[in-house]
């Protein structure tokens, strides 16, 4: 008799997928404001001057805070105790993003790259809904932790590499933890999100610094 990974999990896949539906319900009728906010952020990265682009990390920080307060502390931590300490790490990441906003704005990003990343993130957002069989289980960045971590890793590529590393630590820790949980739960579709997150974080770690002439 040996322990299997799922012997360490104290809840079922059903309970995990319900977290997404409950978060959706808890945020009604404001839930759909979240994707709108992300589209606005994409537009800012494409067209806005550096000063206005500083709103992007501020909005990201708000997303980390919202995710920690609702999805993690209110719903997830009562069934999975390591999530409680992780929520405080999410709050720390929010603080770091605010500090980043004060120090340096992101560089502008071209429309083709933006559209590619939006398409990737949109596809990843659908994974839990696909598994749960309901749109209510849609996983949005800024509301649910895996997508928040993945989207942050993508956006951090708009900063010089030396600013990225410190901010990628918490997303990497979370994605690693989430891969283990979802592997143990055998939730293969949702598992794609943190697994992609680990990959994107590794890419972001070594992605060359983008320089923009208007970034001074």
């Amino acid at each position: 008799m040996d322990y299997a990974l799922n012997d360490f999990l104290m809840f079922t896949p059903e309970v995990y997928l319900r977290l997404f539906e409950r978060t959706h319900l808890a945020l009604e009728p404001w839930f759909w404001a979240v994707p709108v906010a992300w589209l606005v952020m994409a537009l800012l990265l494409w067209r806005a001057p550096p000063r206005a682009r500083r709103l992007v990390p501020v909005a990201m920080a708000a997303g980390w805070g919202l995710t920690a307060a609702i999805f993690m502390l209110q719903f997830y931590a009562p069934i999975n105790w390591p999530v409680g300490p992780f929520a405080w790490l999410f709050a720390l990441e929010a603080l770091l993003l605010v500090l980043l906003a004060l120090r340096v704005p992101p560089v502008g990003i071209g429309p083709v790259v933006l559209i590619c990343w939006v398409a990737v993130l949109l596809a990843l957002s659908l994974m839990t809904a696909l598994e749960a069989g309901t749109w209510q289980a849609l996983a949005l960045p800024g509301v649910t932790p895996d997508m928040t971590a993945v989207t942050t890793a993508v956006l951090l590529m708009a900063w010089p590499r030396r600013w990225r590393w410190g901010l990628l630590m918490i997303p990497l820790l979370w994605c690693g933890f989430s891969v283990l949980v979802l592997w143990a739960l055998k939730l293969w579709w949702p598992l794609i999100v943190p697994a992609a997150g680990v990959l994107i974080i590794l890419i972001a770690t070594f992605w060359p610094t983008s320089e923009s002439p208007d970034n001074a």
Binding site: E14, V15, R18, P78
Partner: peptide
């Protein structure tokens, strides 16, 4: 109750 009754505060479950 291992795994099965750990449903937190979910009213449906």
């Amino acid at each position: 109750t291992w795994r099965t009754f750990n449903v937190g505060n979910d009213p449906v479950l």
